[in-house]
Nucleic acid binder design. Structure first.
Lengths: 322, 322
DNA sequence: AGAACTTATAATCATGTAGACTATAACTGG
DNA sequence: CCAGTTATAGTCTACATGATTATAAGTTCT
């Protein structure tokens, strides 16, 4: 990341009172072939970003510029995610403050754009424990659970030990609890605190990291992606944002697969259809498609008009009960 | 990207690359005597705020400092609200960028603190159309509706006219629609666009503002408060944050009145009790209170333990159906 | 062509919960 | 003692949701 080193180096002579640098950082999400992906640059370990400059009218417009320049991808839907501004968040403690205003953007892949140094990476390469579409992934019970328990028991006092076990149990659904897909950030924080991800390594020098769970990302980018996942998994339930990720025309199963990809769990098919249809979020195009074998499916499109009719309630997820 | 061209005027001598000012700004909320209030300084038109300085470890800690210094009030619960960073947001177009990271804080009044130049102001002085506890307030039908229709019909093309009417109808529940208490921000934006609030005045010089709805606030502080209200009204439904506003011990009716104050609408009493009790959010202290006449009520306290047991689902609001 | 398989679509059933409403209990103030 | 106020319990109903089954309409393989 070149624009964080730049500031410190140049200003060696004159130290400004408020040495602040404001970055815009984008988590661009698309769902490609039922796989939720994030757009990266570099070694697939960096999110698109750039300094917030005076010529930008708004952070959103600045962000669009940076992403398009770095990845060739134009952005549609954008929402502010969080502003990260803690001092030592970049690792080494510098005298310069870095503030990152992060945004969540939703798009679709296609758009040609075999751009230079960028690519789509599945969420689940960074967070292998988050994909429960084929049941609980092995890494949870085989690796994370023992390691988290080990970490919990490593605390000096009994209160902390119990508290850590509790947190882990709630976040990961241990001890007959249910998996809650929205707790992505809490899970990442646990895994981080327990020293099970690479970026946490620098904190404790003596920690032998025999396990590194999930692919690495630069600085705190992985935390930012975790924040995005949590936000998106929550938001699809009360706002119709999934459609930002869909092609103009789609089948109900494709829509379902997309929601499943995002939430990381399976949905009951008839119930999903019922919900979608009775909410009048979509309308038939009248045409059908015969792809993927089986009975041809009706094609639907998103009813943009719905947004003018009432405050829409988004895609409820018929998820399995207890 | 050369962001040095922009910073021209002030920096005649030493041209700084990014002339940025980062402010922390707090919306401190408490509910006093069933009235939701926000903490202000100055002429009750300014939110506590201050520059984000290098010595602050995190924006949260910086904010605590500023608020305590300006109002004498220590803060408990804090959550980030939004980062405002558009160029011309402060009114006069300056060559300097102002970024405001805003936070929502929840407290209780008491705490002694007859501090210098600060005070609690009811939300509804700034947003008189938001309080529906005694039915739809007159200002909505008598004033806002005609003025908004007027504004809508003032658009040049038919499409815009229809769109404006639609937005107003949805936001304010005209034409037999239901009032949705969470649309506070949309409502403020409409009222602002229609030129019905003082702070919108400067935009159009020729606008004769015969009506100024609600009390004025400096810069875009009123928008920030509107954002807070919307966030809080939404959040109490899925997270148990109301208890941050309650004294350690309270009756169920007091709790209900607090929720009603925040949401701006009345709640069915037996249903509210049922929800609260079956969620195990509270527990009886065993004592009763005889205040306010009538049968003495059980006193309850918040079960903090619930937070360690499961991802709590907050206070569902039994609001009137269609 | 027929069998086996895949996907689409309709319909049913059972359960739980939310909203509306009624009734009774226990206190205060005149 | 009566009127008024608040607390608390309980009931009834409509509806939404999760689970399940059945049927329709294609494809692919043999």
């Amino acid at each position: 990341m070149d624009h964080q080193a730049a500031g410190t180096r140049k200003d060696r002579g004159a130290v400004k009172a408020d040495e602040v640098k404001v970055d815009l950082i984008a988590v661009v999400v698309a769902v490609n072939d039922s796989e939720p992906c994030v757009l990266t640059i570099g070694q697939a370990d960096t999110l698109p970003s750039g300094p917030f400059a005076l010529e930008h009218r708004s952070p959103q417009s600045g962000l669009r510029g940076w992403v398009e320049q770095q990845t060739g991808h134009p952005l549609g839907y954008i929402e502010q995610l969080y502003t990260f501004a803690d001092r030592d968040r970049i690792g080494a403690a510098r005298q310069q403050r870095v503030i990152s205003i992060s945004y969540l953007a939703l798009t679709r892949k296609e758009q040609a754009a075999g751009s230079p140094k960028c690519g789509w990476q599945s969420w689940y390469e960074y967070f292998p424990w988050e994909d429960h579409r084929s049941g609980t992934p092995p890494v949870v019970l085989d690796v994370l659970r023992p390691r988290l328990i080990e970490w919990a028991d490593g605390a000096s006092d009994a209160a902390t030990r119990r508290e850590r076990r509790q947190r882990a149990a709630i976040a990961f659904g241990f001890d007959d609890r249910h998996w809650n897909e929205e707790l992505t950030l809490q899970r990442y924080e646990l895994v981080y605190e327990a020293g099970l991800v690479q970026e946490a390594g620098s904190r404790r020098d003596a920690t032998p990291p025999p396990l590194v769970a999930g692919k690495f990302m630069v600085a705190d980018h992985r935390r930012i992606v975790a924040t995005s996942i949590a936000r998106l998994r929550s938001k699809i339930k009360y706002r119709p944002v999934v459609f930002e990720l869909m092609p103009p025309v789609f089948t109900l199963l494709q829509l379902q697969r997309t929601v499943e990809a995002l939430s990381g769990r399976l949905i009951n098919k008839p119930n999903f259809r019922r919900l979608i249809e009775q909410q009048e979020l979509v309308e038939k195009t009248g045409e059908t498609t015969a792809e993927t074998g089986g009975r041809p499916a009706q094609l639907y499109r998103f009813r943009h008009a719905i947004l003018d009719e009432r405050p829409v309630a988004g895609t409820k997820l018929p998820l399995t009960r207890a």
